[in-house]
């Protein structure tokens, strides 16, 4: 498995794809830090607590924050690495040759998955380190313990999220013989979860529990709950809900309840453990999705007839 992992990793890192990815990373990290620091200088007193976390979550001007950038385009990067992992070997006819080597069959697919994950890990860690270094240069003081801890947790969650999309890409590459159809299917899934599910959730909630401005609180609650329920099928929504309490320490509630309770809720930051508890169900959901997705790819691949007929 080690040989497969290193070979795949070298392939990923040496490819033009990786070079383009790195360029995008540099631009995104640079602009987000620059604009974030600019925003700080307008009103330095307001950004006093957790300035490093704010660098990741504030959205100055027209650009989205780094967090939403990752939630939206991160899947594309991950899918890009995974969609042709298996079926390209089939089309090139290299499968039987590789599997004729004395390795286990699962080592091959595991190695591919881990290599993709490692590539994504390098990318994400690079971005975070870059933002971190630029922030250090602009702010002049290092992040404190809680900030570092939260950034570490955020890295793990981000990797989990990207891992899901990688697993999805590999699953499609196992399911579809042609790389083009697996790429199209992966992009379609990505669009469905990032765009259409948000629309569908709103439409369905409106149809099932119609609300007006003067509707009773129960109706609103049911409406919001239904919408949230549908949305949580999307790993994008799960990721956003899971990372918000980690990167915004004062965040302590979800959806309608948080909105209603806002005046009565204190705004001091929570400790990391409590923040994790707030986003825990989403974290577990994310982990489950990734595992299920990879397990499906694994199972289908293991049962696949690989000899060319």
């Amino acid at each position: 498995m080690g040989a497969v992992f290193w070979k795949e990793l070298a392939d990923h890192l040496g490819s033009r794809r990786f070079f383009l990815l790195s360029l995008i990373i540099l631009v995104v990290a640079g602009t987000s830090v620059y604009l974030g620091i600019q925003g700080f200088q307008q009103n330095p007193g307001a950004a006093q607590d957790f300035p490093y976390l704010r660098l990741f979550t504030t959205a100055p001007g027209a650009l989205p924050s780094f967090l939403s950038f990752l939630a939206f385009f991160g899947p594309l990067l991950a899918v890009l690495l995974g969609f042709d992992a298996v079926n390209s070997e089939f089309t090139r006819g290299t499968v039987s040759r590789v599997l004729a080597q004395p390795i286990y069959r699962d080592a091959w697919i595991n190695g591919k998955f881990l290599a993709g994950l490692a590539t994504l890990g390098i990318v994400v860690v690079s971005i975070v380190l870059l933002i971190f270094g630029l922030g250090l240069f602009a702010l002049g003081f290092p992040p404190d313990g809680p900030e570092l801890a939260r950034l570490g947790v955020f890295l793990v969650v981000a990797l989990l999220y990207l891992g899901f999309w990688l697993a999805l890409g590999i699953l499609y590459s196992v399911l579809f013989r042609s790389t083009a159809s697996s790429a199209l299917a992966a992009v379609a899934t990505w669009l469905f979860f990032t765009l259409f599910l948000y629309m569908i959730a709103g439409v369905v909630a409106d149809q099932v529990v119609p609300v007006r401005a003067d509707s009773p609180a129960e109706a609103w609650l049911r409406h919001e709950n239904l919408r949230d329920f549908i949305l949580r099928f999307s790993p994008v929504a799960l990721f956003e809900e899971a990372t918000l309490p980690i990167l915004v320490p004062s965040y302590r509630g979800l959806s309608l309840l948080a909105l209603l309770m806002q005046p009565g809720v204190p705004t001091n930051p929570l400790p990391l453990g409590q923040s994790l508890l707030v986003g825990w169900p989403q974290l577990v959901g994310l982990l489950a999705l990734t595992s299920v997705c990879f397990a499906a790819a694994y199972l289908v691949f293991m049962r696949r007839e690989i000899r060319t007929s």
């Binding site: 380190l129 870059l130 971190f132 270094g133 630029l134 922030g135 250090l136 240069f137 602009a138 702010l139 002049g140 003081f141 290092p142």
Partner: peptide, 13 residues
């Protein structure tokens, strides 16, 4: 900003 940590930041980048 103090430059002491600034150079560390530059180093990281």
């Amino acid at each position: 900003a103090g430059m002491g940590w600034g150079w560390v930041g530059v180093g990281v980048v």
